[in-house]
Design a binder for these strands. Structure first.
Lengths: 252, 252
DNA sequence: ATAATAGTGTCTCTCAGACAGTATGTG
DNA sequence: CACATACTGTCTGAGAGACACTATTAT
């Protein structure tokens, strides 16, 4: 019947336009008080030698989130061998998709971008000049409205993707508890405040920040322990059960 | 050289997995005080006879936004012939992408979903039993957490897409001026309030709503004219220049 | 002692919710 | 007149910004 032929027509692989689908991951962390992103150096054309987001093709068997986690695990594996430590992913969510014709000069590519948060507890980048994966502070990159104008240029439209990821992150910190995804447990309120300051690029009032965090039920839970600092020791907290902040902690 | 061969390898169309990319549009409007979505009845398998979002393949020459506008224009054309009136799109933005394997039983399809707002000024749906495009009130549809459980089922994962679009819309009304995208100019504050009430599914206090809208510079601008209502005539406004609300108008 | 960070208390201003009351149209 | 909606004014409580002050460590 007509329905059957139409149904079969859906199976015809030549019916759909040739478009490749990839995932790209913007993995953000705070290192030495600076918001930073994990980038890889491209070994092939185009943009050979430029820095780009980790990513790759969506394989037939994995869904979009799974593809993002797989690509990230592959890059994290590089981190493991390079820095001797694995990365515990604190959060990963879809950002948006990018599909302008010509964004990849080779072919039509639609990329589904993800943004992830993680802690950073490696002391420093090892001085391996052969490393092709490293963290970049975002204000050392050429990203409109964020980094310095003479920063390192990025491959493809990845500067735009990173800019969008940063804006999403800044907004998420306002009304969710996701700032804790940048930290290992347990953490101090000073560490949590420095996450906000690094992501927002603003200094916050210590006392008011403390009041707002502690007055939000379920944001953080006290552990009863303390950790030494450069001054008075700070109480240690772990993540609470809340995911959304009511009321939000708005940017200055 | 090596770089050249790698570059050429990128041109090989057989290298990327066979994935089709489509756009789907969730066009929302407020009709008779009810938040509604434009759906099309499927003529082919699978889900023949079910209601689905308008959408289609991304063609090689159009970017994602362009593809969404093109598909929407095609469906709007149906609206024109069916209802005798064109639809002025108030706003269109990317929602997110959906790519779970098996979401389309025919083949691997990654769909980039868009959400749009428009006014609704047709008096009623014409009684054309041949119509395959119509507005559905969202609480008549089977959408988890939104519609009634015995509502009309939707094709593919479109119930989830609509649910995500509604949540995006509800959040957008809190901190942007996009509620005006549901209205034709000029409009009254009562009409604007009824947009919020329809999208949020909450009744709002008339006086407090008025105070918040008018105290936000650039949200609406007075025209000096009035329009009759069921009571005292209401002042007419047009959209202001602001796009974001500071402070936001939060849901109750 | 000073320096540095953690943590507490308080004042004031803004603003949201609640609610009363007035204004202006129609039937 | 009643009724419906538009519009104005005021009280109150929650919460953010600003700021002063105390607490506990290291040097």
């Amino acid at each position: 019947m007509t329905g059957e032929t139409e149904f079969l027509a859906g199976y015809d692989p030549s019916r759909y336009p040739p478009v490749a689908v990839t995932v790209d991951v913007v993995l953000l962390t705070v290192r030495a008080g600076r918001l930073s992103v994990l980038l890889v150096e491209r070994r092939g054309h185009p943009f050979r030698g430029s820095w780009a987001l980790p990513g790759g093709f969506v394989e037939p068997e994995d869904d979009l989130d799974g593809a993002a986690r797989r690509e990230l695990a592959e890059e994290t594996g590089v981190l493991v061998s390079g820095f001797g430590e694995s990365v515990a992913l604190g959060h990963l969510e879809q950002l948006r998709s990018y599909g302008a014709p010509g964004r990849d000069p080779r072919m039509r590519v639609v990329s589904v971008a993800y943004v992830g948060f993680t802690s950073h507890n490696e002391p420093a980048v090892a001085g391996s000049d052969a490393a092709d994966v490293r963290l970049w502070a975002i204000d050392d990159l050429a990203i409109a409205g964020v980094g310095s104008d003479d920063g390192v240029p990025l491959a493809f439209d990845h500067a735009q993707i990173i800019a969008d990821a940063i804006e999403r992150s800044r907004a998420k910190l306002e009304y969710t508890t996701l700032a804790t995804a940048f930290l290992d447990e347990p953490f101090t309120l000073g560490e949590l405040r420095r996450v906000y300051e690094a992501v927002w690029g603003e200094t916050l009032h210590e006392g008011n920040f403390r009041r707002k965090v502690l007055s939000t039920p379920g944001f953080v839970e006290p552990t009863g322990r303390t950790a030494p600092t450069d001054g008075r020791p700070a109480a240690l907290y772990r993540r609470g059960r809340a995911t959304r902040l009511h009321p939000p902690i708005l940017r200055p």
